[in-house]
Design a protein around this nucleic acid. Structure first.
Lengths: 177, 177
DNA sequence: ACCCATCGTTCGATATAATGGACGGATGCA
DNA sequence: TGCATCCGTCCATTATATCGAACGATGGGT
């Protein structure tokens, strides 16, 4: 809550608006803005939304803790994903425990499409193709990637990989919920 | 607003909680939860905050528009941030908000050693060399990496990078505290 | 069949966020 | 010096989000 107060003050200062002017542009009573900046109150999201729009920033930018500040990463105890079949040459580089990320490098050659079942809910897959070419993505939404391209999609639905070029190499960041 | 309704429903389904149980854990009336999932209402951030905590997710995860199921960033669409002094360019692929990780791809050619000052405490750098060769690491502990090698070290102390081969490419996962 | 628990929804009562105006203090201009 | 305009804060009123209870529906367990 104090984070919102800080952000609001900072963003308003940046925009050069006064409390009254911001309230006018956002169609919000300036007393409301005043209270918010004072850290008192419990605004509705609609109020915050209109303020964010008037400030020309996204909602997240208004409510999120500024990235630069030190913040504790919550470590929820969650089960680890069982390793996928390594039929196409998957190497586990490392596990970023705190971030619940696994780093893989995948090396494969053209072959049958690999259908992957849905992983545990909340899984997100980040793929960086460093060599070759690949068609991948959730069922019905596959995209073709070439060397250098990057893609991210939810891994908690059925998805597939199809290697299109020999000696294709992929860096896979598996993000677990 | 409907985004919040959708997110809430999805996250609650994922957690396996019923509306009543979620309300109980979050100390929120279940009628409130019911209304929110119906898309009616204009919740206060406190309500959303406690719901997010009860669901074990961040506030942003609850309120943000769900990203497209598959998102692609083409290599030529990513701005290359050049560093003329060391003939190396960096592209930001993506940011994993929840895990406080940034994904970069670094392309460089042999040149002067790049000395990096200590980053914010707790920063850890993961490097995957996908092409070329590189000497890197904290001061006094540099290692030489070739294509396919992986290294991880603390970024909150002075460290350096020295490209040893032309067209060296590195995937960099910058993990913040 | 019954009973009991839990589900999700609906509705009146209540707490409270948002409003609009009043207020004192700055600042600028004639 | 007086007047006007803006600033930010502080209330009373109003709008509404939240609560708690009651409701019908559903799925076991005896």
């Amino acid at each position: 809550m104090t984070a919102i107060a800080t952000n609001l003050r900072r963003l308003r200062d940046r925009s050069g608006f006064s409390i009254g002017e911001l309230g006018r542009r956002a169609a919000v009573a300036k007393s409301t803005v005043s209270n918010l900046e004072a850290g008192t109150g419990n605004p509705s999201i609609e109020t915050l939304w209109t303020l964010a729009r008037a400030l020309g920033v996204t909602f997240a930018e208004l409510v999120e803790e500024p990235r630069a500040s030190v913040r504790v990463v919550r470590i929820d105890a969650m089960p680890l994903i069982p390793d996928d079949s390594t039929s196409c040459g998957v190497r586990l580089l490392d596990t970023i425990q705190r971030a619940r990320c696994d780093l893989y490098v995948v090396e494969s050659d053209p072959g049958p499409t690999r259908e992957a079942a849905a992983h545990t809910p909340g899984t997100i897959e980040h793929l960086i193709v460093t060599a070759g070419s690949l068609r991948c993505g959730p069922a019905g939404e596959q995209v073709v990637l070439s060397a250098g391209d990057y893609a991210v999609f939810h891994g908690d639905v059925p998805h597939s990989y199809e290697t299109l070029a020999p000696r294709t190499q992929i860096i896979l960041v598996m993000e677990h919920s």
